[in-house]
Design a protein around this nucleic acid. Structure first.
Lengths: 131, 131
DNA sequence: CTCCAACAACTAAACGATTAATATATGCCC
DNA sequence: GGGCATATATTAATCGTTTAGTTGTTGGAG
């Protein structure tokens, strides 16, 4: 009942998705080896998380010919996942107001004058090339 | 080891913090009654979550005089919590680039021309009144 | 002073995320 | 085809979140 359809990616899940988005497709072994070695995750750890991602609809696997291992592919693009995350943030903290979020970003004291200028340029460019 | 200092607010925690931010201070009972009645959370549920929030450093309680119940107060402001959430999103999905996030917001197809204009106005206003 | 209602402390169950050990299957080299 | 390396399946331990029951404490009404 009232189960979220999207289910935002967790930290560990996002790590695996990044590998998959970069590679386009990969086996569990390939993903495991592609992860930062400082994490040192076991093959089975990655496998379990891949199954969770599959249950959540983020990836699918094909019982590949010419090899024993399953091949996993993203079912949701990075842009789509990103947009979901932004929408989630908007819902939680900004009452869905994009403007409030932009204002917050501009007010962040870690944002210096040069970065603000770049954002302004970005807006101008977007004006000139409407989507 | 390597314990997060900030620890982003969860959904249930944020609900309680919103009440506290609005009221300035409150007892557990007051918070419980202030929550949307459709949630119908038990007093003990709220109490437990308040203790977690205290452990995380988001609230503190004072052993109040003139009353039996503890009085809880925010130790972290809404703006601060919001900024942490935005930074977390930036780290996860935008490699800490504010510009990328702004671009993403502008490209969101749910954002119409009027809303874009409002964001532009916001930027202009921010230019005229530098922080 | 007694007792009830409100409160706090403790405990824990249900659940998901994260991690991994163990067990089983299978392709391939020789 | 026997056995090693690699894969997948099963299982579960650990932890945090969310929810709430039970028990003990206390302040105030009468």
């Amino acid at each position: 009942m009232a189960k979220r359809k999207w289910t935002t990616l967790t930290e560990a899940e996002l790590r695996l998705m990044n590998v998959l988005w970069n590679k386009g497709e990969a086996t569990v072994g390939e993903i495991t080896r592609a992860l930062p070695s400082k994490l040192n995750l076991a093959y089975n750890t990655v496998l379990t998380t891949m199954r969770i991602l599959e249950r959540k609809g983020y990836v699918r696997h094909s019982n590949s010919e010419q090899g024993r291992a399953f091949i996993y592919r993203p079912r949701v693009g990075r842009a789509h996942a990103t947009r979901n995350a932004v929408r989630e943030l908007l819902r939680r903290f900004f009452e869905r107001s994009h403007e409030s979020l932009v204002l917050n970003i501009l007010q962040d004291e870690e944002l210096d004058e040069r970065q603000r200028q770049r954002i302004r340029d970005l807006l101008d460019r977007f004006d000139r090339e409407p989507q």
